[in-house]
Design a protein around this nucleic acid. Structure first.
Lengths: 193, 193, 193, 193
DNA sequence: TATGAATGAGGCTTCATTCAT
DNA sequence: AATGAATGAAGCCTCATTCAT
C-alpha cells in the first residue's frame, strides 16, 4: 500500500536527543499557541523531524504535554517544598515560595501570549501542596490561622500574574519582595479562619 | 412561498434574535470547550440553525468570541469603573471592585473546565483600566503609593483565582471580604513605590 | 484553522443521486479490490466527488458495505424465498433457487477478481434462510431427509463457484440445469439424515 | 561481538529458523486478519524479530503469502494427485479427494474469520489440476462424461464450504461420506457433457 | 545478519467555508 | 435571510521500507 518512499538522511541523533528535540519544540509551541490551539503537526513543524517520528515517542499531544508537566514538576515542586519546609518565619515561607516560582518561570522562558491554565494534574497537585503547606504552617503558628483554601488560591493568583511581569522583564528580586510584602501584610490583616 | 409572513406580526425582529441565538450558543460552547477547543461547527450544532446562517452574522469563531467579550465588557467595565469612581475609602475601592467582578462571574455561569486567558483586547483593557484607576487612587491619596503595575497584576491574580472559588460555590460576600482584607492589609505593608 | 479553500462547482446532483453515485462506485471497487483491500479513498477516487462528501453520507467503508448488502438482500432474498416457497417439486425448489442466484449475480455484474466471503450478516442470513427452507422442505417431503446443515453448505458452495462460471460467460440456463441435476441426483443418494 | 558464536554449535541453522519463524507468524496472522487486513507490521509483531529482519527474507507481504501457499501446495497437491491417481472407482476418486482436502484444512488449523479466495496461482493450479484429473477420469471411464469445467467448479464449491463445517468441528469422515455421496449421486444424474 | 530509529506517503476524518436553491 | 450539500485543506495516525550501526 505504501510502496515508494525515498528516505533521506538518518540517525544523527540518539534516541534521547530526538525525544528532547520533540519536547523542546513542544514546550515552545504550547507556550505560543496554548494547549488546545496546538496541533501535533505544529510540534513536528517546529522540529527537523518527520511526522512519523513523533509517534515513535508520543502517542498524542496530550502525552507530550504530560511529559512536559512531569519534567516541570520534577524541577519545581521539590524546590518549592524544600523552600517552605526550611522556612522559620512567615516572611521566609512566602519569599522562598515566590522566588522559587519566579525563577522557575524565567528559566522555562515560555514567552507565551496565551495563558492557559488547564487544571492539569500537575497544577492541581501543586495547588494542593501549597494548601497543605499553608495548613501545616498555620498549625505550627508560622502563619496566622485563616481560610487556607482561599489563601492558597489568592497566593496562586498573585504568583501567576506577577510571573507574567517577571517574564516581561521585571526583576525577580524586586517582584519577590513586592509579592512577599503584599502577602505578608495581607495575611496579617485577614479575619481569623 | 411567503405563506407564513403575516404582515404586522412580531416576527420581524428575527434578525437580532438569530444573532442572539448564535451568541448564546457560543457562550455555552466556549465555556465548555474553551476557545481553541471550540469549532464553528460546535457552535452551529448548539443551534437550530444551518451552517450557512452563521456566516451571515459572523466571519469566524474569533469574531463571535470578540462579540461575546464586547457584551461582557459592556456589562462589567461600567460596573467596575462606577464602583471605583464613587469609592471614598481604600476599603470601598477594593471591596466594590472584587464584589462586582465576582457577581459578574457568577452571573455568566461559565463553569468552563478550561481556563484560558487570551490576552484579548477586552482583558487587556480591563487590566489597563484597573491600573489607571489605581494610579488615580494613589494620586488622590485613596491608596498609598506603590508600584501600580505590580499591584494591578497582583490584584487581578487574586480576583481571577478567587473567582474560581466563587464559581465552585463559595459565597460571594465571604470571598469579597477575604479578598478585601487581604488586599487592604497587603497594600498597607507595601514598600513605597 | 482551515481558512482558505477555493470551492469549485456544485449542486449538480440531488442528494439521492450523490448517494447512489457513491454506492455504485463502492460496489465496483469492492468487487475489484475486495472488502479489506478497499480504502475509502479508493471509493472516492472512483467518483467525481470530493473526499469530504463521502462522509456526508457514510461514516466508514463498513457502512457503505452494509448499505450495499442491504440493497442486495432487498433484491435477492425475496426472490429466493419466493422461488422456494412456491416450489412443488424438489427439482423446482432447486432450479428456482439456482436460477435466481445466477441471474442476480449476472445483474450485479461484479467482475471482481477477488472472491471474498466475509461472513457478513447478509450472507449469514441468506445461509440461515436456505437452511430453514431446506428443513421445511424435508419436513413436507419435498426433499428427502438428510443433514440439512451440510446440505445447505454444499449447495451454497455449488452456487458460489458456478456463479463464477456464469460471470465468466457461461449461460445461466445451462448452468442452472447442470447445478440442478447435480444437486437433485446427489440429494437422492444421500444417507438419510 | 562473536562472543556467542560457539563453533560447531547447532545454531548455524538460524537462517532457516528465522525464515520459518516469520512464515509461522504470517500464517497465524493471515488466518486471523485475512490477507488484505494483514500488515507487515502485524507479522513482525507476532515475531521476536525486528522489522528490518523481515526484509532480509521477504520483499513484501505478498511474497510471504506466496511462500505460504507454496508450502501448502507442496503438501496438499501431491496428496490430492496421489489420491486421484490411484483411485479405481468413482467413489474412491471422490472420497479420497475430499478426505485429503478436509484433513489438510484441519491440519492447517486456520480458524480465519475471513474467507478470501485470491485467485492466486496456487488456487488456480489446484483448480486446473482437478479439472485435468476429472477429464482424465472421464476419458478412462472412471467418471461418466459431462462438462468437466462445471463439475470441477461445483466440486470445489462443495469442498470449500464443507471444509468450513469441518473447521467448525464437524467430523472429517462424516463430512467426507456426505460429500462423496452427494457428488457421486449428482454426477450420475448429470446430462452427458 | 540483525536491529530499530527515521522517514514520508497515504489512509482516515473533520473542519471552515461557499453558493445554488 | 436561511438552508445545507459540496468542497478540499489540513489534522490525525499507521504503514512499508531504508540504512547506519
Amino acid at each position: 500500500m505504501d510502496a515508494k518512499s525515498i528516505p533521506g538522511s538518518r540517525r544523527e541523533l540518539t534516541k534521547t536527543q530526538t525525544r528532547d528535540t520533540i519536547l523542546e519544540a513542544a514546550r515552545l509551541v504550547f507556550a505560543q499557541l496554548g494547549f488546545a490551539g496546538t496541533t501535533v503537526r505544529d510540534i513536528i513543524r517546529a522540529t527537523p523531524l518527520a511526522s512519523g517520528t513523533f509517534y515513535n515517542y508520543f502517542k498524542s499531544k496530550e502525552q507530550v504535554y504530560q511529559a512536559l508537566r512531569d519534567e516541570d514538576a520534577l524541577v519545581l515542586r521539590p524546590r518549592l517544598r524544600q523552600a517552605r519546609a526550611t522556612a522559620t518565619t512567615a516572611e521566609e515561607f512566602l519569599s522562598a515560595s515566590f522566588r522559587a516560582f519566579f525563577w522557575f518561570e524565567v528559566e522555562k522562558n515560555e514567552t507565551g501570549n496565551e495563558r492557559v491554565r488547564l487544571d492539569s494534574p500537575e497544577v492541581l497537585n501543586g495547588f494542593a501542596e501549597l494548601r497543605q503547606d499553608i495548613e501545616k504552617a498555620m498549625a505550627t503558628g508560622l502563619l496566622p490561622k485563616s481560610d487556607a483554601g482561599l489563601l492558597a488560591a489568592a497566593l496562586s493568583g498573585v504568583a501567576f500574574e506577577l510571573a507574567e511581569e517577571v517574564k516581561r522583564g521585571a526583576e525577580v528580586e524586586k517582584v519577590t519582595a513586592f509579592a512577599t510584602a503584599l502577602a505578608l501584610g495581607g495575611i496579617g490583616a485577614l479575619p481569623k479562619g
